[in-house]
Simulated scan of single mutants.
Amino acid sequence: MRLSDTERARKGRRMLRILKLLVFLLVIGFVALVGYAYLGNLAPEKTDVSEEVTLDG
């Protein structure tokens, strides 16, 4: 079974579309990973706070 030129071109375009989608998903995943690495560690700094309190009575 031989494919005609149009069928071969259609398969080629489909493969190119799948490759573009794969590259796009890889880039989005990498950007998300980098964003998480930078923004995922936003724990506040812990410091001791002491203040004297006077009670009435």
Rank of each mutant, 00 (worst) to 15 (best):
2 R>T: 09
2 R>Y: 04
2 R>D: 02
4 S>M: 01
4 S>Y: 00
5 D>P: 02
5 D>L: 11
6 T>P: 00
7 E>L: 08
8 R>F: 13
9 A>E: 09
10 R>F: 07
10 R>H: 05
13 R>H: 12
13 R>P: 01
13 R>C: 07
14 R>K: 14
14 R>D: 03
14 R>M: 09
16 L>H: 10
16 L>M: 11
16 L>Y: 09
17 R>L: 15
18 I>S: 10
18 I>D: 11
19 L>E: 02
22 L>V: 11
22 L>G: 12
28 I>M: 11
29 G>T: 13
29 G>R: 00
30 F>R: 03
30 F>Q: 03
33 L>M: 13
33 L>C: 12
34 V>A: 14
36 Y>A: 05
37 A>E: 09
38 Y>T: 08
38 Y>V: 14
38 Y>I: 14
39 L>F: 12
41 N>Y: 08
41 N>P: 01
42 L>I: 06
43 A>G: 05
43 A>Y: 06
44 P>L: 04
45 E>Q: 11
45 E>G: 05
46 K>S: 07
46 K>N: 05
48 D>I: 13
48 D>Q: 06
49 V>C: 00
49 V>H: 05
49 V>I: 14
50 S>H: 08
51 E>P: 03
53 V>F: 02
53 V>M: 06
53 V>Y: 15
54 T>E: 15
54 T>F: 13
54 T>M: 11
54 T>R: 11
56 D>V: 08
56 D>P: 01
57 G>M: 14
